[in-house]
């Protein structure tokens, strides 16, 4: 397989379903670079899973093209380097966890001599309790199935990993573990396509996130630029602070830093800031004005605003997006 800077190239992809008046995908174009973690975000029915199905060669597009490393998604060489976790893990419930991963190790073309060791390492990596290894998967909880599914996706060391809601049904330690595994994969230069509703997970892991709605990409956001986007800064003041001029001071801070005071009470204030730099200035100015800040945090992340369709007016212009 030839190595492209753009490992996955989707060009004007169209997909229709029988009996549905609207197209599921309306000419989507997107590129994913090698070693990149690319997120798909959007409401239910937006077309994220359809896009992922087309990328995996599970669904046949009605128009447009997909190439992975210059090859068709159904090419044998592509299947050798991909791993996939579906949203709803629906595994063969009569197999034990160990048998299931051994089966997929064999299907992925893994070396038989190292199978047992590889499988055990993988089950440990996803932190599946050892006493569950010999239990039939039909008796697993959703979170355990998700861990097992992740092990299945990662067995064989794939170079491209497609994950559909990997954190779904996982307990908090599971979500933390998932994040660590994904960051580890990123460090190993694996390419990840992640479909998730966990916005914080997306923000921490993804390099770019595409917002899909009604079968179209509304915007593609580069996460490294996150601090440059306008957001609401929430300031909380120490409860002991009895400053009668608190509101006056915070209004002065807002004026001096070019931000807008949206809301104020004796314990907290909400300010609309234009960027991360502006937020920093606000905090600095508060300190200079002897305001005792207990905490300062963005009220909502930029992805949350994008997801809930409430972007600040000035933000939409800054999204480096593909409005189609």
């Amino acid at each position: 397989m030839t190595v492209n800077e753009n490992l996955i190239v989707v060009d004007k992809l169209i997909k229709a379903y029988e009996g549905r008046p609207d197209l599921a995908l309306k000419g989507i174009s997107v590129e994913v670079k090698e070693g990149e973690c690319f997120g798909l975000l959007g409401p239910n029915g937006a077309g994220k899973t359809t896009l992922m199905g087309c990328l995996l060669g599970l669904l046949n597009p009605d128009g447009g093209s997909i190439s992975i490393g210059g090859l068709d998604p159904n090419d044998y060489a592509v299947r050798e380097i991909i791993g996939f976790l579906p949203e709803r893990p629906n595994f063969e419930n009569w197999l034990t966890a160990r048998e299931f991963i051994e089966y997929h190790h064999a299907l992925a073309g893994g070396d038989k001599s190292t199978r047992s060791k590889d499988v055990e390492n993988m089950l440990r990596r996803v932190a599946l309790q050892e006493d569950a290894w010999s239990r039939k998967t039909g008796k697993f909880s959703r979170g355990m199935l998700q861990r097992l599914g992740l092990a299945q996706a990662l067995i064989g060391n794939p170079k491209i990993i497609f994950l559909d809601e990997p954190g779904s049904g996982m307990d908090p330690p599971g979500v933390t573990l998932l994040r660590e595994i994904l960051l580890e994969l990123k460090r190993s230069n694996a390419t990840i396509v992640l479909n998730s509703h966990h916005l914080d997970e997306m923000e921490r892991i993804c390099d770019r996130v595409a917002f899909i709605k009604n079968g179209e990409i509304q915007a593609i956001k580069t996460m490294s630029d996150e601090s440059d986007y306008p957001h609401v800064l929430r300031l909380r003041f120490l409860p002991s602070q009895a400053d009668t001029q608190l509101q006056e001071k915070i209004e002065r801070v807002a004026l001096a830093t070019g931000s807008t005071l949206l809301e104020f009470d004796k314990k907290s204030a909400r300010l609309a800031v234009a960027s991360g730099e502006a937020a920093s200035k606000v905090i600095q100015s508060c300190i200079e004005n002897q305001l005792q800040i207990q905490s300062a945090s963005p009220e909502s992340t930029s992805l949350e605003r994008l997801f809930t369709q409430l972007p600040l007016p000035s933000e939409t212009a800054r999204l480096d997006g593909h409005a189609e």
Partner: peptide, 18 residues
Amino acid sequence: TLGGRSDYMPLIVTRPLH
């Protein structure tokens, strides 16, 4: 039980197997 839609075939057909 499966509604004829979700099964484990997607996991098989995405493996390196003709």
